[in-house]
């Protein structure tokens, strides 16, 4: 009976949410990692300004964010105009619009763990790599990134989770278009509004289980990193 129920359940919102979260997370890591690296080496003033801007989405109500994003992405907004100029539709009420909104909305969750990882690593491993003949790019990829791996993983998990849980901003700029912008959180909200508690339950439980599995896997894999064992007592002989 449960199986019957599950097969009749509309899973499009789940797929859409996952797609959105994966794309957002990947893009966020690609943007936030070099930015964090640059900020680590820059002056205190630059760092303060950039961090303050990047942290804004954390303190603003989603409605404020959603409102400005709507203006930015809409038919008359600069990004919407650009998109139309390039031959697409405006970005509001589209999946692409959701991706842009999610990146901005989850930005602090990606930037801060990576930046913390780089800061706590300090300059020393990089200097060691330089004296061993590694060029700046070489040092970044072979020393900075691997040492910051736990921070990058945390950033990925937080960005992913935060994007999955996004609701207010999406409602403001995406609306409720099935298969395009009707993500999981919106679908659950709809079901609850229509007093379809069975469906709401099913989607919510599936989401809980899935989120747990993803988090567990990430933390489990991370605990196998040599850096995670760095806290075990030193071995003498």
């Amino acid at each position: 009976m449960l199986l019957d129920f599950l097969t009749t359940l509309d899973t499009t919102p789940i797929v859409l949410s996952l797609k959105l979260a994966v794309i957002t997370t990947v893009l966020l890591l690609i943007i936030a990692t070099p930015l964090a690296w640059w900020l680590t080496g820059s002056s205190r003033r630059t760092k303060s300004i950039a961090t303050a801007v990047a942290t804004l989405p954390l303190v603003l109500p989603p409605s404020v964010l959603g409102f400005y994003l709507l203006l930015l992405l809409g038919t008359d907004g600069p990004l919407g105009q650009l998109s139309q100029f390039l031959g697409f539709t405006s970005l509001a009420f589209t999946f692409q619009g959701l991706v842009i909104a999610s990146i901005i909305y989850s930005f602090p969750f990606a930037l801060q763990p990576i930046q913390n990882a780089f800061e706590s690593m300090g300059r020393k491993p990089i200097e060691a790599a330089a004296t061993l003949g590694a060029s700046p790019w070489d040092r970044f990829f072979t020393v900075a990134l691997p040492i910051a791996r736990p921070g990058i993983l945390t950033a990925a998990v937080l960005s992913f989770a935060h994007t999955i849980g996004e609701f207010g901003v999406i409602l403001m700029i995406g609306g409720n278009i099935p298969g395009e912008t009707k993500v999981l959180s919106i679908a659950i909200y709809d079901h609850v509004e229509s007093i379809e508690y069975d469906q709401a339950h099913a989607l919510s439980l599936l989401m809980i289980v899935f989120s747990f599995v993803v988090l567990f896997l990430l933390y489990f894999l991370n605990s196998k990193s040599p850096l995670a064992t760095a806290k075990t007592p030193a071995h003498h002989d």
Partner: peptide, 20 residues
């Protein structure tokens, strides 16, 4: 630049790569 100088540098606190 540092990586082009034919030097070996031994730091005060070893400074080995913790991940390797």
């Amino acid at each position: 630049p540092a990586h082009k100088r034919p030097i070996g540098y031994v730091f005060q606190e070893a400074n080995l790569f913790p991940h390797l």
